[in-house]
Write a protein that binds this DNA or RNA. Sequence first.
DNA 1: CTGAAAGCGCTTACAG
DNA 2: CTGAAAGCGCTTACAG
Lengths: 337, 337
Amino acid sequence: MRSVTIRNVADMAGVSVATASRVLSGHPSTSEVARDAVSKAATKLGFRPNAQARSLRKTSTQTIGLVLPDVRNPFFADLAHAVEQRARDFKYLTLFGNANEDADQQDRYFDIMLTQRVDGLIAAPQGNVTDLQSVLDSGVPTVFVDRVIPDTTVPSVTPDNVTGVQEAVRHLTNSGHRRIGYIAGPQSTSTGRERLAAFQSALADTHADDDADLIFFGDFQSASGAAGAHHLLELPHPPTALLAADSLMSIGAVGVCNERGLTIGTDVAFVAYDDIEAFSLINPALTVIAHDVNAMGRLAVDLLTQVIAGETPESVILPSRLIVRGSTPSLPGGLTS
Amino acid sequence: MRSVTIRNVADMAGVSVATASRVLSGHPSTSEVARDAVSKAATKLGFRPNAQARSLRKTSTQTIGLVLPDVRNPFFADLAHAVEQRARDFKYLTLFGNANEDADQQDRYFDIMLTQRVDGLIAAPQGNVTDLQSVLDSGVPTVFVDRVIPDTTVPSVTPDNVTGVQEAVRHLTNSGHRRIGYIAGPQSTSTGRERLAAFQSALADTHADDDADLIFFGDFQSASGAAGAHHLLELPHPPTALLAADSLMSIGAVGVCNERGLTIGTDVAFVAYDDIEAFSLINPALTVIAHDVNAMGRLAVDLLTQVIAGETPESVILPSRLIVRGSTPSLPGGLTS
DNA sequence: CTGAAAGCGCTTACAG
DNA sequence: CTGAAAGCGCTTACAG
């Protein structure tokens, strides 16, 4: 299936390849006669320029790479959608890589993106600088989104990982909870680390128990949320409230509560991370720590275009906030902070 | 940021570009001396072959295109994940395009995929043959997944859209329901059409009302599910059971039931499409029509590799089945079919 | 406005 | 086993 080349178009139009190329790419220096002939020939032949050949000649590929930890996580699915739609505004095609919350797959995708010569890279990375070394060395314009890697100067768009957690802990302790179980994200991610630190420092400001047993380390995927809920609820002195550091672990943990016959809101309070639509449907609806994923995706692309243009944009931190719903009722006899 | 080329590697290794190329691509005809020198030079320089140049020379790009209707739909997110993971087994990079349930965006992505010269294309398409014309004309190996376009000979992997719906209708009527509201998918999609037809023919086998008012046409997105639930529940003679044709419309519809103070399972029975994890967490858990999305994604890739190899594989239809949960209690006085 | 020619970074028959 | 050379399909100074 040999596809039609610019050569064929030029021949049919009776002009040189150079002229055909000029017409096809909208170069001003073309005669009307040439424009007509070339356009007609191109549509008649169904000509479609070869992106590889064009990219090889020009310095740009008009593509950006997006490396995310997990498409199946609704938060990242929304983020992917936001990035892609915004990239379209700049005529960029988004190459999408799904790291599966796995450092090796992530690094392989970084490699592929560089091999594909993307014009820019947006990533929600895990790990440390060594994972990024090839990307940094290549000098490809890069922006981090949601997560960052410390000790790099890569611009980023991240959520405020402190305020939401703080509000959640305050809300729970105000409602009388003293034992809050925390299902943490992996400490190889900045969000995992920052949210845990925020949780611990928020605890210190309250009368709640600061007990190492109340923290379970998950991996941001559903099964680990389930494992975490099991572990915490089996404790000799189990928590009366649970807080999970992302939506997938929240889903896993809620499932375990249901299985064990615990009524959420009554038997155990629950705060989830990320405001995904399904969480407002669970009965009672889940209290969540929310942030604006759409803005995050758009801004990441905007920052990237600036980096590509040679500028060095400031990193952005987006606010997060607590949305209180039925899963965390305010107890009448609650303490005040 | 001029990147290092094979020329640089060859120079440093003291060999010709041809030899460097042979070593780098594992061609057997190379001496150990050359292998050593080239390998060393390549790693020392951080050489990364230019995929564009390579693709231009070879006939293949080692990429496949995946055009899906909506990443934010958990079903398609899962499908994307399945396809991508399977594609990796064949060393294919997956270029991902999100049509946003929009025919124009879909067609633009088809265009982009052809321009990028993907080795193959997997799509869950909407529309009719004209949308596909350029793809068919190009002769690029193509496989449909989940959805198909009629009057084409493209191999496909689709769910059985009949059995699950049939079981759902039978289950509901056996439980005494006579008025079942149906939130249909867009009729521009094969799944939308087939599921509606299955619903109507299943109704004909029962004593349930076959009333045009009981059918609402949505677009597979959440907001239309909400609109559908509103419309149906406002009917002078409203349905006692609802069935929605995909997960996103189910989410929207369940939200509306909650808002209106209707208790699902008690005030209104509910059957959702696609077995996404969150549906088992809603209280009561939702009865769903389930199919194996993971198998669907894997098989689509397997079929595509066969098409690429010049074979003409048979299309596959995967079974779907009803999973009964709390949202559709069996009424004690239910009719028997 | 137009064409001939060089070149983007690779791969691969063709000789040797 | 190795190198010189041609060529994949484009774009773009350079002359005219």
